[in-house]
Design a protein around this nucleic acid. Structure first.
Lengths: 169, 169
DNA sequence: GTGCATGCAAATCCTTTGCAGTGAT
DNA sequence: ATCACTGCAAAGGATTTGCATGCAC
């Protein structure tokens, strides 16, 4: 699919969502949507805000957060809490790319994506077993990528200077 | 295992960790460890702090956070970022209970635990495939429990009053 | 006695909110 | 002309940090 076609398609989806929910179709919202669909990474709200700023596109942080919320609701983006060394939420576009999970390097934060049908099986099975109506899941594998493997550390979060005192085991 | 035996065992583990890392064996640290091992839930730092306060045990928030960090490093507790409707980190003791994953109700936040060997298989396989040295993983299933099933909503986070305006789809 | 750990409060980070002005309907 | 949406800055919640004191070593 050409990029322009993709933009058109997602905008259409967004539009019908906005109409259905009696939300206004503002220029800011479409600008943010387009900006997101130009990216191919796992970005955070602040990064998106900065990017827009750089391009002299004037939207406030509040609008960025607001729009991210709307886009989640119509499944045009997905939100992740990669707990490796930061609490900040990260997002990725989710239309036109299939469902996948993530593998993250604890050292350098590099993110890889993968698919495995067994995850869906597990999800279904556990839902039945425990009587939950499963709607979605999050599977994150934490490890060291090839490049960071040479200096393995504890797999835990450790980004506090106060903790830097700790001797590596 | 009797509770006292469990306490002794985890304290021993903690002690050797502290020694190995040239950390001091303070009363506060052991108190917090014991308090955690009395619990059977998925607690957060503030909740633990409050609990200690209630019991007239005087430790500061800073010490609670510090100790939680240390306990993670010696694998006596595990940290989770259940992103269902809050960003706050939750913890659970992890000695004497086997590795498991979680299923969370989007509505009421009830947490269930489950095990499935396939997750470990996936983890190993993807590590090989993508050249990562996997150290751990986090799998969370989100859904509605039996009790909350009657009022299904979007699976997304929506706890902002500003967003309450949104009409349910 | 030395210096790491503590307690407290202030600072920080990410995110949400209040309010007044703007613009979609 | 309405009133939802925006921008801005201030507030908020969770966590971290600075600093003076205390205690493990």
């Amino acid at each position: 699919m050409k990029q322009q076609e993709l933009f058109n398609e997602v905008k259409e989806i967004f539009t019908s969502y906005l109409i259905k929910n009696k939300q206004r179709k503002t220029a800011e919202r479409y600008t943010i949507l387009e900006e997101i669909y130009k990216r191919n990474d796992h970005f955070d709200a602040e990064g998106l805000f900065i990017e827009l700023k750089k391009k002299k596109i004037n939207v406030s942080r509040a609008t960025v957060y607001n729009t991210l919320e709307l886009l989640q609701e119509c499944s045009l983006i997905r939100k992740h809490q990669f707990g490796n060394n930061t609490n900040l939420a990260r997002f990725e576009k989710s239309f036109g790319s299939r469902q996948h999970d993530h593998l993250i390097c604890i050292e350098c934060n590099k993110v890889m994506e993968f698919c495995d049908p067994r995850i869906h099986q597990i999800s279904t099975r556990m839902g039945e077993l425990l009587n939950y109506n499963i709607e979605n899941h999050s599977l994150i594998l934490y490890g060291h990528c090839r490049g960071c493997e040479s200096m393995p550390q504890k797999g835990s979060v450790n980004n506090s200077p106060r903790k830097k005192k700790l001797h590596a085991v």
